[in-house]
Design a protein around this nucleic acid. Sequence first.
DNA 1: CCAAAAGTGTTAATATTACACCCATGA
DNA 2: TCATGGGTGTAATATTAACACTTTTGG
Lengths: 255, 255
Amino acid sequence: MEYKEYIEKFFNQGHKHYLSHISIDCVVFGFHENELKVLLLNMKNLNSWVLPGGFILKDEEMETAVKRILTERTGLTDIFLHQFQTFGGLSRSSFTVPELFFKNLQIKKDSWMFDRFISVGYYALVEYSKVKPIPDILSEKCEWFNVHDLPELAHDHRHIFDEAWQSLRFWINHYPIGYNLLPEKFTMPDLQKLYETILDRKLDRRNFQRKMLATGILNRLNEVKPGVAHKAPYLYTFNIAAYEKTLKTGFGFAL
Amino acid sequence: MEYKEYIEKFFNQGHKHYLSHISIDCVVFGFHENELKVLLLNMKNLNSWVLPGGFILKDEEMETAVKRILTERTGLTDIFLHQFQTFGGLSRSSFTVPELFFKNLQIKKDSWMFDRFISVGYYALVEYSKVKPIPDILSEKCEWFNVHDLPELAHDHRHIFDEAWQSLRFWINHYPIGYNLLPEKFTMPDLQKLYETILDRKLDRRNFQRKMLATGILNRLNEVKPGVAHKAPYLYTFNIAAYEKTLKTGFGFAL
DNA sequence: CCAAAAGTGTTAATATTACACCCATGA
DNA sequence: TCATGGGTGTAATATTAACACTTTTGG
């Protein structure tokens, strides 16, 4: 049984390969059908949902670890990442699980996995349609959830999610967003929906467009969105050079 | 020799008490004579300056650890803290030191202190005049430096400092500041100097005053600063209730 | 009595918000 | 042809920036 072996090795030997006491938790945001989504995992045998996460190899950059973890969960490379907070609460977890989880498993009582962890929180922005959610070895399901309709989360993951979303809301008032969340070509209404969804409030159509165009990060194409009812909206792409530049400098406006 | 014993115990036994692979680095800001200051330590035997830092006890909240560390360095309790970033670079340090540091010391080659560390960065705001800088066991000196005139820092501490200052600059555009950096009674020019020093640019006297008063976090006293040449400025205190409230909600203006 | 610093108010510029009309399209 | 959503411009308001005169005081 490959699973059994893997788990046992992970619990009993993992500390030889990974930094102990340190974990990574990721809040992966996607945008689909005008809804902001988050990727969650359902742990095997336990019926609990958790954020995707993992550990840092001893000879691995922290950010490389995050990318590795997220590539495993989503199939994507080149993911936008933002480190938003590190969680150090004493009671935040320890990997406490009911006995049944370990039936048939030979796991040492002093496994590194039962130690206390400090967790570094990252949020990621990904293009929903390109993601192939892949459960990890400990989990059964990997699914998208609407941010307004999350299941109960284990440990302090609800808190981590809340902090991530808040951080994201703050971020988009200062830095451009969308390149990582939208398809290559998108419409102004698409972009506005994205902002509205993240900020969780309505924005004025005309003012939004004016501000966005003023940032200079958009290219309007000589195409309109095909196959829509009513007047077809223009398609846009991001002006990557300007976008990247603004990612560094920030623009100072509030939507 | 107490020092020798302590160091040996710390290097050889510390992993039993502290979380391995995790450190804390603090950027302690003070304000004195219209200069923004940072507290640095000079390591014994090495002539290198570092940020104050430390480790987390296995049964200690992370924030409690930071407070403990800073109380040891400054003599203060109740310090304003802000976690600004976590540093996970592979090459960021490891505690590499020249051989001479270990002359006469019996330290195991596999001491936890030679492992790789992920470091959680906090900045602290303290009232300069109340601080009694106290070196730690590994260091010889603990001194204030003007932020514009820092010595060379070991490891990636210059980078950590830069990120802290940047984070602080960002912070003060959204949240009140000063309660932890100024004496209880202060003048409007004092407060302005503080802002100017942190932001590293001049502000308009009149507009500054208007905005500050508009926030409602200040109480003007019926006293003026004694013993000054020229017209004496009013003294202010912070309205703690309003200050604390604004610390949570933030005010949205840019200086 | 004057230089130097502090207190205060007004005006101009800019940014933000609110709002209304026309256009294109598929049903 | 009409209901729906998209494109655009302008006026009102709020915020920010620029700026000048008066007051106080120690030397």
